[in-house]
């Protein structure tokens, strides 16, 4: 049985690379990504699981990294916005102005990327239900919706 206490070194598979970090078991994945690994794309918004600004992909599924302990993730693949590397969803958000202040954008893009991966065919009900996980305080939802539609077109193109 794995037992960790005090300050321990863990290895996280982040964006395809093994990254070592000295953490406390109580450290959330969000804090470790930002403060130990320098990956500041995931944003610290509410730290309460409400806003979605800290969304990352854990084994391909979007999760709120403020609600996950880093030590839980040693056997998982973590993808942050830094790991998408010019994904069609990123391009679409830039081209369609799917952002205003940009604070929610990394979380929005990662959730949208997971959405188009899990549901390649557009479905308004699924898209709406899926994207409700992320809040935009600027209320820039129209641009975000347009960006998602544009990303789907890019991905559907031969």
């Amino acid at each position: 049985m794995k037992e960790l206490s005090g300050i321990v070194e863990i290895v996280l598979r982040v964006n395809g690379e093994d990254r070592r970090a000295a953490v406390r078991p109580g450290d959330t994945l969000l804090r470790v990504l930002r403060e130990k690994l320098g990956l500041t794309g995931a944003k610290c918004g509410c730290e309460n699981g409400d806003c979605g600004a800290c969304t990352v992909l854990l084994d391909g599924k979007p999760v709120k990294s403020c609600m996950v302990l880093a030590v839980e993730c040693e056997d998982a693949a973590v993808t942050t916005i830094e790991g998408l590397r010019d994904h069609p969803v990123q391009q679409a958000f830039a081209e369609e102005n799917g952002f205003q202040c940009g604070f929610c954008t990394p979380g929005m893009i990662l959730n949208a990327a997971a959405l188009v991966d899990a549901h390649p065919e557009p479905d308004d009900a699924v898209d709406r239900e899926w994207m409700q996980s992320n809040l935009c305080r600027c209320t820039g939802y129209e641009g975000i919706r347009n960006a998602l539609a544009a990303a789907r077109k890019k991905l559907a193109a031969p």
Binding site: M1, K2, E3, L4, S5, G6, R24, P25, G26, D27, T28, R31, L69, V71, E72
Partner: peptide, 21 residues
């Protein structure tokens, strides 16, 4: 981030879990 110092235990069986508790 949780301020308290916590330990993390990851048992493989239910018996190990309740024993850890």
């Amino acid at each position: 981030m949780i301020a308290a110092d916590v330990s993390y235990l990851c048992p493989d069986t239910a018996e190990e879990a309740v024993d850890a508790w």
